[in-house]
Nucleic acid binder design. Structure first.
Ligand SMILES: [Mn+2]
Ligand SMILES: [Mn+2]
Ligand SMILES: [Mn+2]
Ligand SMILES: [Mn+2]
Lengths: 217, 217
DNA sequence: GCTAGTTTTTAGACTTGCCTAAATATTTTA
DNA sequence: TAAAATATTTAGGCAAGTCTAAAAACTAGC
């Protein structure tokens, strides 16, 4: 149906589109795709001809309805494979992204529906992100960044914004994991750093950490 | 490491090489790869520069030691994924080939070693073909084609030569499956057709069928 | 052993996806 | 609001992998 490159672009536009109302800029997409702006322009033209995106020169790009559906299916596959890798093959959450990045492009409806069944229809991936169903529907959790909490507030860790291996390893090292309860013992006005309480210990974290952790109060 | 196309060529050469001592001809490879002879020549040159094959113009092509090892790893991945699809996801043996054809190219050592473990280190794929281990070792079964048996001989079905969906569906329809005992009740000299005895019934089969079934006596 | 037929290679071209450099459009700043 | 800075697009090119047509090399038949 679509080439590997086309699929990766669609997914990238989808992820960038979430962050704002405006169209996705060429440079933002180039950054995300680790390529040059001129290459992005080429690809956008192609996707536009295929009616997968809506594009006006210099005005940024938007996913069309078809484009959005396609992107959601790729996201679905990516996240289902991540669950498989962690639940069945014993990967840790910082090892799955790269492999899922390849597996998400395997073309087989049956493979994905059977995998979904085999995994018992999981609702979230190992990073707390929602898994769209076969129709592209998924529930948006009401969550907030840990950095938004004030002293005394507490909640449950339900996701991470940054899924880089480096960040996830930092969390592992400090026993910060999905489902854990976190309470803000203190928040420093000057730099936004926090003292947080985990089950067994307290810990001081920088705003770079607290602004990449999603909490459900 | 290697491109998708390079990997598919290596695997094709590997499979064709099994059938004879001689080098693999350009046309045979073109047929197998569903492409043109001129494209094959181009690719062979490339593989030859990369020392994956031994190639002399007009003389056919052979896998080098490195090429053979690479091909064996791809075959290993292909067959492990086939086992996964049948054992874990409920695919039938005639549905797995195409999907495995894509899955075999996913690049991750850990993925394959963990998958192997998850599947409990299977020795054969759903078509009875041996699965090479991480070092490329595998056991060659002593098997013979059903068409080589004479009247009165019997054995166990241990593999199929043709794994096309059409042939496998024919076998399913007639309850011919891996592990079944088959006895040759009669063999027609004129056209080689056979009357065979399965557990619950007897059946007449053409040489096109009997010459694609492997038997262990 | 020569020649006709077959196989293989070469030559030149196309598509996809990428690049650099240059041109053009938009946005910011003074 | 016009120049300066920034963002985006265009132009031209490259590598991989494929194709068609033509040339060259093998192989069989006489
Ligand atoms: Mn990807
Ligand atoms: Mn994820
Ligand atoms: Mn393949
Ligand atoms: Mn098989």
């Amino acid at each position: 149906m679509f080439s590997l490159s086309e699929e990766n672009y669609l997914k990238a536009i989808f992820h960038l589109q979430k962050n704002s109302e405006a169209g996705v800029s060429t440079n933002a997409l180039a950054e995300e795709m680790q390529t040059k702006a001129s290459s992005v322009t080429d690809m956008i033209k192609k996707l536009s001809e295929k009616k997968l995106v809506i594009y006006e020169k210099y005005r940024g790009v938007y996913l069309s309805e078809t484009g959005r559906k396609t992107a959601l299916q790729i996201v679905r596959k990516h996240r289902l494979w991540e669950v498989f890798l962690v639940e069945k093959l014993g990967f840790s959450w910082d090892e799955v992204h790269e492999v899922a990045e390849e597996l998400e492009h395997i073309k087989s409806e049956k493979l994905i529906s059977e995998l979904d069944k085999f995994l018992n229809y999981p609702k979230r991936d190992p990073h707390g992100d929602p898994i769209p169903d076969a129709k592209g529907h998924f529930q948006v959790a009401n969550k907030t960044l840990l950095s938004n909490l004030s002293k005394g507030e507490k909640g449950t860790l339900v996701g991470v914004k940054d899924s880089s291996s480096e960040f996830l390893k930092y969390l592992d090292k400090n026993a910060i994991a999905l489902g854990k309860t976190i309470e803000v013992l203190d928040k420093e006005d000057f730099d936004g750093s926090m003292l947080i309480q985990l089950k067994e210990k307290s810990l001081r974290i920088s705003p770079m950490v607290s602004s990449n952790i999603y909490i459900k109060i």
